[in-house]
Nucleic acid binder design. Structure first.
Length: 800
DNA sequence: AACTCTACGGTTTTT
DNA sequence: CCGTAGAGTT
């Protein structure tokens, strides 16, 4: 035993050791970036087990399922077994609710609605209430309601002042009623209902308190009001609550997370032991210095200084380039250079603020045959055909699910159009049942439906009935059968949509994998009780997984992170938000520009925030700074920042301004390279303009075709061996933009001050030029009609 | 009922 | 720029 304990403490610094050895009572671990937090948490779990705590008495909450899986593995390596309940808040709550649903008066086969489904419900509610959806969009209302729910506010808890607030309350109320009718829970409900369960049902609460004698929560700085209350409820009896987090890495306030939860932990649990982990083991001194320099500018912050014994390392780099294509090119050349020095693709990650920025990187990587994985974007389970298939399964399990019914009743085409669907919806309301259930009563159908639609609906209902008779396990068999019987597979085959067909194949694979992982016998070996009776039958919760509901639950709660593959040697592309908790030797942060990083907030909050609009602004911009900080501190060896001079946004080039975060980095901490040069500075240029390149200070003209050679030459001088990639690519992109119109544009390359003539406006002079190629615009001041912006590709302007 | 065309608006970030 | 909601067409 003592050797095991020694192992567990081996290589830990004093505070880490203290955290691992503090087994009882409330514990707050303030863990700076890269301070070995995961190590501490896993060792602490192992230590608990070594001290006689039974694995199933430990509940550990992580941010993603993937993180949970990794932690489970590490614990198993340390103590040879697990059985620790490791999952996300959402998965945890979903499982508890599956088991305890009867207590709350809803079905165990409830459906989990994703954002898309929730939005659809909101839409029907808006329609029903006759609200003008121009004034309050479904999206805005959904966000608002989600905000209430994550603070555990019921509709009747809201303080109503304005008209808008009244509407929101009404929609919230109706929305919840609709979810209940559908036997559906949205993401927020998973937390909220679990909270209600524990709050209002003493017996249940006690049962789970006894079961989970130790509670650990990772990334506590990103918990919302509901999660916070859940932790409190579960932990209040034994007070064996350990939370870890870093206020500087709180980046989810926009979805209800409240950093105050971690700041006030000591107050909620008196006698908390606080451990600070401030030695960083991840990054070079240079990386750390840069990150610290920036985060220091946050006012709302507890002072903290991370330090490291790691080497100074190479200086972080700032690369300034012309536009987003060149930005991607710059990253790719650097990647090729790194690979040339023997580094692996998997050592490298590219982070950006918005998913929309990923495209140029993908294109560049593909062109250079560099393997990569894109995390996020439209995940697998949100593809249309996959959602259709899942909707069938959902309807099989839960006949009350009208959202799924409406989604698939006419997919594939069965000749059941909008009018029939509307009629069914009305009938469902009249008969107080679900849409699918209206099909059980044939009288109204005989009377009110055309024969064609009626027969289709009979066939549809019968098909579902047959499927419902099928064994629910293995899930894969049912999935296959469903794909056949529904006609989904045939219709995809016929239409030749290979991509979608592949996705469906992948769905079958997912079901096969699910079956393999949840095989009843194997399942018992994984977690459940060595001692019967120790759990009050809580093992059933785990068993419940081996079902269609379990499969659907996995699908619904799958995070993009979970799909990430560690094993493959590929470059990783993802948003800054998804980067939390990860590390890579080389990190690129793209688009370090005002308006992007930090992101500007456009719309004002819908209501309630008038008096605190400015506070809100400050809070938001500090969160952006934390986001930058999270990104920067992922880098182990070297950090690359990128900014462009002009960026294509909504199909228009916009001049970019350096991010304020760049101003906050002392000059000696960053090595700046300007590949764009003065000629690229204005952003107001046009095919044919004279430009100067920083590639050897050469001059040239932006001209597709002819310009290729000139540009290649420039590039060759600065990047031997990588002939012509940089500016040639620019030229290629310019050509793309100009396309066939080029010959016309080339003749009409205007400069400020040119006199021009327009067919209807007459003569005028060019005052400004913006954009490139087909999106190029000029502002012309006409003698008789004043100033006007004209699209060059449309307006036929002639020089005079 | 299903297909085609156009106008519009969208970009934060995600469980 | 791109996708899609809604209108208009067959």
């Amino acid at each position: 035993m003592s050797t095991v304990v020694t192992d567990i403490l081996q290589g830990l610094n004093p505070p880490q050791r203290e955290a691992v050895e503090t087994l009882d009572g409330p514990l707050l671990i303030l863990a700076g970036a890269g301070s070995g937090k995961t190590r501490v948490v896993t060792r602490r779990i192992a230590n608990l087990i070594n001290h006689g705590v039974r694995p199933w008495e430990i509940l550990a909450i992580t941010f993603t399922n993937k993180a949970a899986g990794e932690m489970r593995q590490r614990v198993e390596t340390l103590v040879g077994q697990s059985g620790v309940w490791l999952s996300t808040f959402h998965s945890f709550c979903a499982r508890i609710l599956r088991r305890e649903a009867p207590v709350l008066g809803f079905s165990q086969t409830f459906t989990i609605y994703d954002e898309d489904d929730a939005q659809k419900v909101i839409k029907t509610v808006i329609e029903k209430l006759g609200i003008d959806d121009k004034r309050m969009s479904p999206g805005a209302l959904r966000t608002l309601i989600s905000g209430f729910k994550s603070k555990a506010l019921a509709p009747e808890d809201l303080e109503i002042g304005t008209f808008h607030e009244r509407i929101a309350q009404q929609v919230y109320q109706e929305y919840q009623a609709a979810l209940t009718r559908n036997q559906a829970l949205d993401f927020d409900d998973l937390l909220l209902k679990a909270l209600v369960l524990f709050r209002d049902h003493t017996e249940v609460r006690e049962r789970y308190r006894q079961r989970f004698r130790h509670v650990l929560v990772d990334e506590y700085q990103d918990t919302n009001g509901c999660q916070y209350q859940l932790v409190k409820l579960l932990g209040e009896g034994h007070r064996n609550v350990c939370v870890t987090g870093d206020p500087d890495q709180s980046i989810y306030s926009w979805r209800g997370a409240d950093v105050r939860n971690i700041l006030s932990f000591e107050r909620d649990f008196p006698d908390t032991k606080v451990v600070r982990l401030e030695q960083n083991y991840r990054s070079t001194q240079n990386v750390l210095a840069l990150a610290s320099a920036v985060i220091k500018h946050n006012k709302e912050r507890k002072a903290k200084e991370l330090w490291t014994e790691n080497p100074a390392g190479e200086p972080p780099a700032l690369r300034i380039v012309g536009d987003q294509d060149l930005e991607a090119y710059e990253v790719v050349s650097e990647i090729e250079r790194l690979i040339g020095t023997g580094r692996r693709y998997s050592d490298i990650a590219v982070f950006y603020r918005t998913n929309a920025q990923s495209r140029p990187f993908e294109q560049s990587l593909i062109r250079s045959a560099i393997p990569y994985q894109l995390i996020g974007g439209t995940p697998f389970y949100e593809r249309r055909e996959v959602k259709d298939a899942l909707a069938y399964l959902r309807l099989l399990v839960n006949p009350k699910d009208d959202v799924s019914f409406a989604r698939i009743v006419n997919v594939p085409r069965r000749g059941i159009g909008e009018s029939s669907t509307d009629l069914i919806a009305r009938k469902a309301t009249d008969m107080s049942c679900s849409m699918l259930e209206t099909l059980d009563r044939t009288e109204w159908m005989e009377k009110e439906l055309a024969q064609k639609a009626r027969n289709s609906l009979y066939a549809f209902a019968r098909m579902l009935d047959v499927l419902r008779q099928q064994p629910r396990y293995p899930v894969a068999d049912l999935v296959k059968r469903m794909l056949n019987d529904s006609g989904l597979l045939d219709s995809l085959r016929e239409s030749g949509e290979d991509e979608r067909l592949k996705n469906i194949e992948q769905l079958i694979n997912a079901a096969v994998t699910y079956d393999a992982e949840n095989e009843p016998g194997k399942l018992m070996a994984q977690g459940p009780p060595p001692e019967p009776g120790a759990f009050d039958g809580l093992d059933e919760i785990v068993q419940m997984q081996a079902s269609v509901s379990g499969f659907l639950e996995n699908a619904a709660l799958m995070t993009p992170q979970d799909a990430r593959k560690n094993s493959e040697d590929v470059v990783t592309l993802m948003t800054l938000h998804m980067a939390k908790g990860l590390e890579f030797p080389f990190v690129f942060i793209a688009g370090v520009e005002e308006g992007l990083l930090p992101m500007v907030r456009v719309g004002s909050s819908v209501f309630g925030a008038e008096q605190s609009a400015q506070d809100e602004q400050v809070r938001a911009s500090e969160e952006e700074r934390r986001l930058f900080y999270v990104g920067a501190t992922r880098a182990k060896e070297r950090l690359f920042l990128l900014m462009v001079r002009r960026r294509l946004r909504f199909g228009k080039y916009e001049v970019s301004i350096p991010s304020r975060f760049l101003d906050e980095i002392p000059e000696n901490l960053i090595e700046e390279t300007d590949r764009a040069g003065a000629g690229w500075d204005s952003g107001n240029f046009q095919l044919g303009n004279r430009v100067r390149s920083s590639f050897g200070g050469n001059r040239g003209r932006i001209r597709p075709g002819a310009a290729f050679e000139e540009l290649d030459e420039f590039d060759a001088t600065s990047a031997p061996g990588k002939k012509g990639r940089g500016l040639a690519q620019y030229a290629a992109s310019a050509q793309e933009h100009s396309n066939d119109e080029f010959s016309q544009l080339n003749d009409t390359a205007f400069e400020i001050g040119d006199r021009v003539k327009h067919a209807s406006f007459g003569e005028g002079s060019v005052e400004a030029i913006q954009g490139l190629g087909l999106s190029a615009k000029v502002q012309v001041h006409f003698r008789e009609h004043g100033p006007k912006w004209l699209m060059l590709s449309i307006a036929k302007l002639r020089k005079v």
